[in-house]
Computed example of a mutant assay.
Amino acid sequence: MSDPRPWMPEDGGAGAKRHAPATLRNRDAIAAVLADWLPPTGLVLEIASGSGEHIVHFARAFPALDWQPSDPDPAALTSIAAWSAESALANIRPPLALDAAAPDWPVAQADAILCINMVHISPWEATVGLFRGSAKHLAQDAPVILYGPYLEEAVETAPSNLAFDRSLKERNPAWGLRKLADVDRVAQKFGFERTHRYAMPANNLTVAYRRKSKSGA
């Protein structure tokens, strides 16, 4: 069952470190998929890192990779920095203030982009910006990997996800579960195609995109 509300930077108390309960439940399943997609070395840019707990787990699981967390929210950036400092992992870079919807990102190039639970908890412009930025900053053949709940044609939506969608829209009308076909169309606009779909626990999906080959572009 999906969480009844999205994690927000104020969750987890007043301390610097915030806690997203879903992280403990999904991080190993996500890491298992990442093992098939991440390059052996290079830089992984995480968009919308939230509390920072995911990136600490993945940096520990994939020590040969450098990890760049980011988030537009100052409270999230504080939490990311606190979790990273506690981990003492040398392969996590300081978090960047990065809004996916912004036309310019404060990064040069990445070898993979990871985005967990942002698409449904942000305006649609953030998803457009995610692929626009990926087209600018990703190395050739590098993947864009998304995780979260989606609506799919010809696939019955779980009642818990329908309730989650309603709660998101009540909180912010610009939020809500997106149709995966609409995400695919935005990806294609910026030269990406979805190549894999993984069913995940709690009625979520992991979907992976790569640049379209010249013959298919």
Results as ranks from 00 to 15, higher is better:
I145L: 10
Q188S: 06
K214M: 12
V155Q: 14
H19A: 14
P63S: 07
P106H: 04
L34Q: 01
S2H: 14
A154R: 12
R166K: 11
R171G: 08
S213I: 14
H19G: 07
P39E: 09
L34W: 04
L114G: 06
G50Y: 03
R166N: 12
L177C: 08
R5T: 11
A110S: 09
P40I: 00
E46C: 05
G52C: 00
D104A: 05
P72I: 09
A82P: 03
D36N: 14
H57T: 11
L114R: 09
W37Q: 13
E10G: 12
N172P: 07
E152K: 10
D99M: 05
R132K: 05
R178V: 03
Q109H: 07
L114W: 10
P201T: 07
L168K: 13
Y150M: 07
A108D: 12
T195P: 00
D104M: 05
A139R: 09
Q140M: 07
D99T: 05
L180T: 00
G176F: 00
S79I: 01
D11K: 08
L162T: 11
D182L: 10
E86Y: 03
D182T: 14
A29W: 04
E10V: 11
A142H: 02
N26H: 11
H196E: 08
I145C: 04
L89V: 03
G133F: 05
T78R: 01
A88F: 02
E53Q: 15
R25S: 12
L162G: 06
Q109T: 08
S49N: 12
A76N: 03
S87F: 01
I47G: 02
N203S: 01
A101W: 11
P201C: 07
S70P: 03
P123G: 14
R166W: 09
G133Q: 01
T195F: 13
T23G: 12
R197M: 14
